[in-house]
Amino acid sequence: MNRLLWVEDLSGHIDTPKGRLHILNGVSFCVHENECFGIIGESGSGKTMTALSVLRYAERLGFQIDAGAIVFEGEDVLGFNKRRLLHYNGGRVAVIPQDPMTSLDPLFTAESQLVETLRTHKKLTVKQAKAQAYAIAEKMRIAPEKLKCYPFQLSGGMLQRIVGAAAIACHPKMIIADEPTTALDVTVQLQYLKLLRDIQDEYGAAIVFISHDMHAVSMICDRIAVMYAGRIVECASKNGLLRNPRHPYTRALIRSANLSGEVRGKYDTIDGVPPDPLAKPVGCSFADRCPHSMPRCFAETPPKTTRDDHEVCCWACQKDESKT
């Protein structure tokens, strides 16, 4: 499979009155065509900022990139000029935002916003755009009469489909879904996730699924990356990660998510807290919470090691490998 998106060693910060927040500290991953790629992590891990960086929106929020590269379809995203960016956003990479209730302009109908998106990227008359809008709505299982409604008249689930429709309208190569199910009822979540997969199959777009919800990620993703304190600490195929998690953080995550559904006497939490982003990271960020940490973990940042297409950044894992 071809590499659609390649992020290499991306680092960046935001300056605040309190100090410099080191949000991304060398993020590296890649997404292939037609793949459903999940990024999982706690809030504050930098997953949203990674997505925003790929979209070139992070800089509007004051985020400054220190180092790294973002390559999409072989092109240097960080070097895009304004014109290319306008085409890139929405046309080649689309976003399904976290909160559908506030993501649409309350003064316009769903239909008009879909038409607007279509006409931004393609040369269409209003009539043609409307026809396409209705076609896409059908795919997203949106009843035609709902399109004529204003956002305040629609339920959360319906709105999520509408923003989804806006995302796929221009046939993007990649869709970034940032916590798409967080705002939905549990019952609707499943439906929605299935819908996303169907869309992907139909349109051949890659999906980057960002979430803190291990269950959702594990349901539809092909490959999963785990993010902690601004770094990808582990990345593997779904099965590979779930059956054989190597990084201590991943293991803890899976355990606390209780994916196996066992009945346990107590809840498993991970001791400690994520590091303060104001401090520049030295060594492995997880070291102070890790049951397997060694002196080396605190001093040197573990590099990425790959075995059988399963990547991990961990000194303890390396040591294990060398043993076997």
Binding site: I65, G68, A69, V71, D76
Partner: peptide, 11 residues
């Protein structure tokens, strides 16, 4: 292919 860019919001 490293690139350090420092772009402010452009409106």
């Amino acid at each position: 292919m490293k690139r350090t860019t420092n772009m402010k919001r452009v409106t």
